[in-house]
């Protein structure tokens, strides 16, 4: 039970909303960094501490995840979006038990990609807000491709690792009513938020008021690394699925 509470505090949204978002001192960038760090801690911990799933905490995490979906739909800032995705997926972390660590790891890697994009936006466009910098596909296709990969990964599109770990878990678990509700609604939440952001950020007519900048060599390295990591995780997740199938 204590382990459950620890995990909940690390990955659930409520603490962040209560303590961090209310304060003006903490920027959204910082909140993401902190959330990501704590999620990393939780992932590491989950390899050592057995995570039993507590229905009460999962239900609370689920409610706050739904609230996060609502918030994510409202925001147009990549930093905020990145940490909202952590909270949206918190119930999975609790629910997936041992599979949760790998799922969260691939989620975290995708979110680091999004974070790198947010950094890039902040540097070149003055803010990590994507609404103003629309039409990326036409203006800077490389950035557009990376955003697409990260978002479709988060949106649980195969063959990216999030969807494969998710599938592995679905194969491997006995379902009950709560399970169905959470799996379906959070799957849809991830998908809808990702697709909405994809539509608003990369498509459309370019903004003539903006001087678009594409990634330079130095900026390409982290993205390339993230794509490689996602690729490796995909291979591992495929192996997991085959193990289960065979």
């Amino acid at each position: 039970m204590i382990a459950n509470i620890v995990f909940f505090l690390l990955v659930g949204a409520l603490p962040y909303y209560i303590f961090l978002e209310k304060s003006e001192k903490f920027s959204s960038k910082f909140i993401f960094q902190l959330s990501a760090f704590l999620l990393t801690c939780a992932i590491v911990l989950s390899f050592f501490i057995e995570n039993e799933y507590s229905k009460t905490l999962v239900v609370i995490a689920y409610i706050s995840a739904m609230y996060s979906v609502y918030r994510a739909m409202k925001t147009t800032n990549f930093y905020k979006l990145a940490y909202y995705f952590i909270y949206i997926n918190a119930p999975f972390f609790l629910l997936f038990e041992e599979n949760g660590a790998f799922y969260s790891l691939s989620l975290l890697i995708s979110l680091f990609g999004l974070y790198a994009i947010a950094n890039f936006y902040e540097k070149h466009y003055g803010s990590a807000n994507y609404l103003y910098v629309r039409g990326i596909t036409l203006a800077t296709p490389l950035v557009g491709i990376y955003i697409t990969v990260y978002l479709i990964s988060i949106g649980l599109y195969p063959p990216l690792p999030n969807s494969l770990f998710f599938l592995a878990y679905v194969f491997d678990t006995e379902a009950d009513f709560l399970w169905y509700i959470i799996i379906i609604s959070i799957y849809c939440g991830n998908f809808l938020v990702s697709m909405k952001v994809l539509e608003k950020s990369i498509f459309g007519k370019t903004n003539p008021n903006i001087h678009y900048v594409d990634l330079n060599t130095k900026e390409k390295i982290p993205h390339f690394t993230i794509i490689v990591l996602l690729g490796l995780l995909s291979l591992y997740a495929t192996k997991e699925i085959f193990t289960w199938v065979l």
Binding site: T76, G126, Y132
Partner: peptide, 16 residues
């Protein structure tokens, strides 16, 4: 302004 894509991102953030 936001709807017409004329409001820079930082002001959209401020509005949030």
């Amino acid at each position: 302004l936001k709807h017409n894509y004329n409001l820079p991102g930082k002001y959209i953030d401020l509005m949030e």
